[in-house]
């Protein structure tokens, strides 16, 4: 039978920054084709297909309870594969090759990580699990 794709609603207007993304108006309905844990979801909106930031979407049925995973305060060891300089005040600035602990793998691709006493958001696409092959 047909694969039933989840339908989400855009919660704000989004203008694409790269070719393979989708422009969205707040209220647009999209079908979710693929959820990438880096926070980019591949969606279909009418006849258009492209990548959309998960942070701009909420489930059509149950808008308030998202399927966010639970935080893991013990922390999981990850290594940064790219440096990133914080833009928002709740983000961390880290160099490439730093070992940090991932506390919360948020669906929007901005995981909460801890380095010593500091915690903040960091792009999950710049992290790989310690021991994972590159």
């Amino acid at each position: 039978g047909p694969i039933i794709l989840e339908t989400y609603r855009a919660i704000a207007d989004y203008s694409k920054c790269t070719k393979y993304e989708l422009d969205l108006q707040a209220g647009d309905h999209v079908e979710i084709v693929e959820k990438n844990d880096n926070g980019w979801w591949f969606c279909q909106c009418e006849s258009r297909r492209g990548w959309v930031p998960a942070s701009y979407l909420e489930p059509l049925e149950s808008p308030d309870e998202t399927e966010e995973p639970e935080p893991n305060y013990e922390g999981e060891l990850y290594i940064t594969t790219n440096s990133y300089t914080a833009v928002e005040d709740d983000e961390l600035t880290l160099e490439e090759g730093e070992t940090i602990e991932v506390i919360h793998k948020l669906l929007d691709g901005w995981w909460v990580v801890r380095k010593g006493e500091e915690t903040g958001h960091y792009p999950s696409m710049f992290l790989r699990a310690k021991g994972e092959k590159l």
């Binding site: 919660i11 704000a12 989004y14 920054c17 790269t18 393979y20 993304e21 693929e34 990438n36 880096n38 926070g39 980019w40 591949f42 297909r49 492209g50 990548w51 930031p53 998960a54 942070s55 701009y56 990133y84 928002e88 929007d108 691709g109 901005w110 958001h121 792009p123 696409m125 710049f126």
Partner: peptide, 22 residues
């Protein structure tokens, strides 16, 4: 190919949404 996600991190949640969720 189109199935390759963008190489840059996605934007943070729109500010008003973040306030609502936290």
């Amino acid at each position: 190919s189109i199935k390759q996600p963008p190489k840059n991190p996605p934007p943070r949640p729109p500010v008003d949404v973040r306030r609502k969720r936290t």
